[in-house]
């Protein structure tokens, strides 16, 4: 084993680690009959009833409905947290108020699902990204990974903290009902339905009212698509939404992961290779170690280290 061989070994490992260019942008792809919600921010009146309904439906700390009528909440920008799965914020990009509701986007290729060490997050066949508390170890990698900064953690709970985020009102969906926030909305700002149909609906709306909307359905392609979709009169980045590309976030890591572990061939090959080196170089171990080490040193570099100290 000389230095050249060693470099070759590193090179071959490196190759396995660099993802191929041909990586698909959707490791899993949009679901055929996933559901979703279309949020038309041009319709929203900022009544915050969805927040109240969400808290009630998900057994979050409840407050009086009337307390949600206060406009003081709009004074600062709020994010969903462990006891609020959805919040409405007010923006005035052109002077006039626009309200935007925020919650988990239920991504088509969710970073949280890809990240989770024990698959506590799963993408159900209906599109819901659901959390299974019984698996979770609280590593919070899902929180780190989410490009929308959605999952929240109960940092002040010493023994039984949970990851918290919009559940898409799973129980209501399973009963055939719409999510609580959608049901309560007094102005039909939120539309619940099949994601594909919602995308069609969104484009029809834009076509019919080109002056009302920017020609972009936020969530149709962002990070590989999301179940929640947004229409607006200004770019969504002006309503506090991140500017994201169309590649699913997990695609690079999963490509790396899959190339390292492709049928376990690379690890087994490396194992065999190391064993082989061990076998091939066993000679100069005991017998001629003395002469060898005079000229050949760690990684083949000769060194005068033997003479001084």
């Amino acid at each position: 084993m000389d230095r050249r061989e060693f470099t070759k070994l590193l090179g071959s490992m490196g190759l396995a680690l660099v993802p191929g260019k041909a990586a698909a942008s959707h490791p899993h792809g949009p679901l055929a009959d996933g559901v979703g919600v279309l949020v038309d921010t041009t319709v929203c009146i900022g009544c915050r009833k969805c927040e109240w309904a969400c808290n009630r439906s998900n057994n979050l700390p409840e407050e009086e409905l009337s307390s949600f009528e206060s406009k003081a909440a709009f004074d600062s920008y709020r994010r969903p947290d462990a006891s609020h799965y959805t919040v409405v914020n007010e923006f005035k990009p052109n002077g006039e108020a626009i309200w935007a509701k925020t919650q988990c986007m239920h991504c088509e290729d969710p970073a949280c699902v890809s990240a989770c060490i024990v698959s506590a997050f799963k993408k159900r066949s209906d599109g819901v990204v659901a959390y299974d508390l019984s698996r979770c170890l609280g590593c919070r990698y899902c929180i780190l990974a989410c490009p929308f900064q959605i999952p929240a953690y109960e940092y002040d709970n010493a023994f039984t903290p949970q990851v918290r985020k919009c559940t898409f009102c799973i129980e209501r969906l399973d009963e055939g009902k719409a999510p609580a926030c959608v049901s309560i909305c007094p102005v039909e700002c939120l539309t619940y339905g099949k994601r594909e149909e919602l995308i069609e609906l969104a484009h029809r709306k834009i076509e019919r009212n080109p002056d009302r909307y920017v020609d972009h359905v936020y969530g149709e392609h962002e990070v590989g698509g999301t179940s929640w979709l947004y229409l607006s009169s200004v770019p969504m980045t002006e309503l506090g939404f991140p500017d994201l590309g169309t590649d699913a976030v997990p695609c690079v890591t999963e490509t790396i992961q899959h190339s390292i572990f492709k049928n376990f061939i690379p690890p087994i090959a490396l194992f065999a290779f190391l064993c082989q080196i061990m076998w091939l170089t066993r000679e100069h171990g005991n017998s001629d170690d003395a002469e060898k080490s005079d000229t050949v040193d760690a990684y083949g570099g000769g060194d005068e280290g033997g003479t001084a100290s």
């Binding site: 699902v113 990240a115 060490i117 024990v118 698959s119 997990p250 992961q257 572990f261």
Partner: peptide, 14 residues
């Protein structure tokens, strides 16, 4: 938990 085969998550780097 990660030891349990039922929890294995090959897609997860972690």
């Amino acid at each position: 938990h990660p030891i349990m085969p039922s929890m294995w998550s090959g897609h997860s780097v972690l």
